[in-house]
Design a protein around this nucleic acid. Structure first.
Lengths: 354, 354
DNA sequence: GACGTAGGTCCTATGGAGGCC
DNA sequence: TGGCCTCCATAGGACCTACGT
């Protein structure tokens, strides 16, 4: 009934625990092939599995800590976890997950006023609980890719930032390649002969260096405008929306329509804005893509519910999760930003201009 | 630099490790208050935290295994994890998560042909990896609430099924109260004086005992029709959709409209169907809720993006996750189905009939 | 040389026996 | 004789160096 231990296996094979350990771990030793076979057979018969708790006292714990702010709340977060788990499984690692409940918008200014080397208490309880389990490393993820200060407590093990950039110097981080993504989506309009009647919805070029703006947003916009500039294109309008939700998209587009702007293509900065845009267009009797094309970012599940389905540059969360684990376990991983491409999902919302 | 150990604390306090252990664990002993204070101070100063790996060799691991099928893929799954984590934190527990990659649709028929007590190999590798970390219990969750056979390997620790019913006898499981949810939504129509022109979209009363139908669906429908029957109401139509997505909802409603059915209220079996219904209604120039009311189930994020927002009975995933952890840690938890209410989100898609 | 094992180590928890003033 | 504390032993499971025969 109880879990069989190494001694049980050894006893059954008529050998010492030492011998059993050596064999089951493929350590070079002078044990006979016959003895090895007996041990393996015994282990198989008993269904022996090493006790990781005991093992971690001497070696690696085969465990990875996954810390996020509110990631599991958002639909997207699951994909990062999923990717990380897939990758972790390949090397027999397991994921220990936690949420710090810190508001990701407020860079948690860790007081550096500690007396004496370390100052517990101001560190996140969640992270400490995690470190108590001796993970081999920690993945520190955020919902919105923001600069983050890694709590000092977490620095005792390797750290990889996931969907978060580091405010500090030499940090290993994984981010979507927003700049290239912006170029892809803008390029799509160029390739389809759009040159006028283009509206950018979500943020204006002038607003990208607002304090509230994340690096992700500005890179996305930089990518878009780098392409526009190369082709001498000036958008018909740029609409700034503080909150990127359906309501904002709806209002923005309704305003444009009411002003009788000659719309050809809407470049929305995320799918929720695009969703609102659809609503406004439909209400006004305009058809996507016959009258107006719509392109967007994120590849929210939403994007494929829409009619027609939305052409969008996907946030590659699963791949990012995978990469984060790979980097964490790789000693030689470069301490820098690792960018993951945002694949464009070509769907029905885009039609080539004559 | 390295993690301080119990001995480090003891040394600093000028006491033995034994004394330090007794004090930090609040064990009854005859140690002086002065000594106790010295130990606590030393622990604080060093930032001592017990090594859980070592501790679990003698006591509980303070770890809970969270196993799911493909839960982290779906947006909803995150909410269960979130709830579970919140609750786990209250008792200093941490979540170890894994996905079995078994197709949840195929009840994994575990071959009971094992020779000799246990038969490893046919058990899920993911679950074994989890059990190796000696969790205090396992939460076994599925995306679609289906009957599930708990792998034999997992039975060595307490198990709670989350959003999954048990095919076996005495199992502790947590499910949404679909029957009551169905009654709530149908009751909402009654309360708002709907009596004719009601269409049920998603599944017909006759189809609920199909093999493909989950218990969740039939309970939801049973709830709906129990109310309809009590009030002598017969739906105008019941439309069976094998897949509950936007496309199906669109097609169903378009067909009804083309047939010039006098629609008053659409009772959709989930939000994606409702979303498709909206699209068909809008296309036909019908307004929600002025011309047709729409009610639904799940409270997908989608539901609040729609215009008007969708009235829907929410799947209480966060609460379910919390309850699962509470039941797991409670020795005396009743081995039965624990049902969690589905709160109705009253929003703009419903208007009272004159 | 061919084959294998004893015993210390990682860190914590705990009961019982004894020491010191 | 208390009052206060420590050492020892043991346990938990696996790993590994250094020794046997």
């Amino acid at each position: 009934m109880a879990r069989p231990t190494l001694s049980d296996v050894a006893r059954r094979a008529g050998l010492s625990p030492t011998a059993a350990s050596l064999i089951l771990n493929d350590r070079p030793s002078r044990l006979s092939e016959d003895a090895a076979e007996r041990v393996r057979k015994a282990a198989r018969e008993l269904g022996y599995r090493p006790n990781m708790a005991a093992r971690s006292l001497r070696t690696k714990s085969q465990t990875i800590g996954f810390v996020s702010d509110f990631i599991t709340l958002a639909g997207f977060g699951g994909q990062m976890i999923h990717g990380a788990m897939q990758e972790a499984r390949k090397t027999e690692h397991v994921l220990l997950i936690t949420e710090t409940e810190q508001d990701p918008l407020v860079p948690h200014a860790i007081a550096e006023t500690g007396v004496e080397g370390s100052e517990p208490g101001d560190e996140s309880a969640a992270i400490n609980a995690l470190l108590d389990r001796l993970p081999e490393g920690i993945i520190y993820a955020t919902v919105r890719s923001q600069p983050v200060t890694v709590p000092k407590a977490a620095r005792s093990v390797p750290v990889v930032l996931l969907n978060a950039s580091s405010s500090a110097e030499a940090e290993c981080s994984v981010l979507p390649d927003e700049y290239a993504g912006g170029r892809s989506i803008a390029g799509l309009l160029i390739d389809n002969n759009f040159s006028s009647g283009i509206v950018v919805i979500g943020s204006s070029q002038t607003a990208i260096h607002d304090p509230g703006s994340t690096p992700a947003v500005s890179r996305r916009l930089d990518g878009i405008f780098s392409v526009f500039d190369e082709h001498g294109i000036t958008p018909l309008a740029q609409i700034d929306c503080p909150i990127w939700d359906a309501q904002a998209g709806y209002t923005a587009v309704k305003t444009l329509i009411d002003a009788r702007e000659p719309l050809n293509a809407l470049l929305c900065l995320n799918d929720r804005l695009a969703f609102g845009a659809y609503q406004a267009l439909t209400e006004a009797g305009l058809r996507v893509p016959d009258d107006v094309s719509v392109v967007s970012f994120d590849d929210d599940p939403l994007a494929s519910y829409l009619r027609p389905q939305l052409t969008t540059a996907a946030l590659p969360f699963r791949e990012m999760g995978e990469l984060a684990v790979r980097l964490l376990l790789d000693q030689n991983a470069e301490k820098k930003e690792h960018l993951v491409p945002m694949p464009v999902q070509l769907r029905g919302s885009l039609r080539s201009q004559a």
